[in-house]
């Protein structure tokens, strides 16, 4: 009963729009694997959408539609992700980066921008939930709004080991990347998991004290901080976020 009420309120606040960015990201990840939450969101969308009648229409600038047509031109109808965005693992912990990079190449070639990437990732989420057996390895993709994925993070829930690999991330002069975690039962505000000292290679971390079930639903963040890490104990620089999706066994 309590849980149902929580789902209901989460859905309501998600649709109302008052969740923080981190909370929104977490809800969007959860709804792909929690049909009850997804259904509650749909109900609230129906409840509240009549309010939109109050919004006055505004004519878009005349050059906007040509820009949209240009964006959808070409071989870019790639919404489904059916052809296998295999952000997978081979040996259980090592993420198959070569495939990821090939896919990145195709994304670039398609050149439809962030919307397509987001749609592909959304497709991956949905497709994976349906066809894949339960996995103990999960991956999170970090991408920065309108750019390609920067980092990949994989988590082995059994060993609670995190592996972070850069995809397109580059070292930034006089800055360091810092990894954060936030999530129900773990920490309501971002908790530092340490620095990613070497952006050209793989970083491994172990989270011995975190319950795997909580870890599964956590949101991870990577922020750009002064050397030595955030002076405040909270992210201070621009941050990327990722939530976990099941990886291939």
């Amino acid at each position: 009963m309590r849980e149902r009420e929580d789902i209901e309120l989460t859905a309501a606040e998600y649709v109302l729009g008052t969740l923080t960015r981190e909370e929104r990201v977490a809800v969007e990840a959860r709804r792909t694997r929690e049909p009850a939450l997804d259904a509650a969101i749909a109900v609230w969308e129906r409840h509240l959408s009549p309010m939109l009648d109050d919004v006055a229409p505004v004519a878009p600038p005349p050059d906007l539609f040509p820009a949209i047509e240009a964006a959808i031109a070409g071989p870019a109808r790639e919404g489904g992700g059916q052809d296998g965005a295999r952000v997978g693992t081979r040996d259980g912990t090592v993420t198959d980066l070569a495939r990821m990079r090939r896919r990145l190449g195709r994304w670039r070639a398609a050149a439809v921008g962030a919307a397509a990437i987001a749609a592909c990732l959304a497709g991956v989420l949905v497709v994976r939930e349906v066809i894949l057996p339960p996995s103990r390895t999960f991956v999170a993709v970090f991408h920065d709004g309108d750019t390609q994925p920067r980092f990949l993070l994989s988590v082995d829930l059994e060993s609670r080991e995190l592996t972070i690999r850069p995809v397109t991330a580059e070292p930034v002069a006089d800055k360091t990347y810092q990894l954060w975690i936030v999530g129900e039962g773990i920490s309501p505000i971002p908790r530092s998991l340490g620095l990613l000292e070497d952006v050209s290679g793989t970083t491994r971390k172990r989270l011995d004290q975190v319950d795997p079930a909580l870890l599964r639903n956590a949101t991870f963040g990577i922020s750009l901080e002064p050397p030595g890490g955030s002076p405040t104990g909270q992210p201070t620089g621009p941050a990327l976020h990722g939530t976990l999706i099941p990886a291939e066994d």
Binding site: A71, R77, E78, V112, G113
Partner: peptide
């Protein structure tokens, strides 16, 4: 708004 509307219609096209 221009940017977001553009993204939204690209998404509508794809989805």
């Amino acid at each position: 708004t221009d940017e977001v509307v553009q993204d939204v219609y690209v998404k509508i096209w794809q989805r």
